[in-house]
């Protein structure tokens, strides 16, 4: 029972990453695509935790820690480029 509910939650998160990517395809300006990339990053952090729980290794959580910091630096760099250049 617990496992089935948990796997349904993972499938819904996978569908969410697909929807965010459709906005990246459609987006009229580059800023829309950056917003879609930001949302995809946050959803994929959740998906990494889901994979770590499904495959039963604690060590995979460290990847989510690294990703949470690095993606922030990348998004801020793109925002500064959009505004006036790095």
């Amino acid at each position: 029972m617990v496992n089935i509910i948990y796997q349904i939650a993972g499938a819904i998160a996978l569908a969410a990453i697909l929807l965010a990517f459709i906005r990246m395809i459609k987006g009229p300006t580059a800023a829309d695509r950056v917003v879609a990339l930001d949302a995809m990053t946050i959803i994929s952090i959740s998906l990494i935790i889901f994979l770590a729980a499904t495959l039963q290794r604690v060590i995979y959580i460290d990847i989510a820690l690294v990703y949470g910091l690095i993606s922030f630096v990348g998004i801020v760099a793109i925002a500064r480029y959009l505004e006036r250049g790095i």
Partner: peptide, 25 residues
């Protein structure tokens, strides 16, 4: 060009998810 760079970043993001499935953290 900026949109192409953002799409290349998305490819790397999804590749790092696939490496977890392939057991290479």
């Amino acid at each position: 060009l900026l949109s192409a760079v953002i799409a290349a970043g998305a490819i790397s993001l999804l590749a790092s998810l696939l490496y977890i499935v392939l057991a290479a953290p």
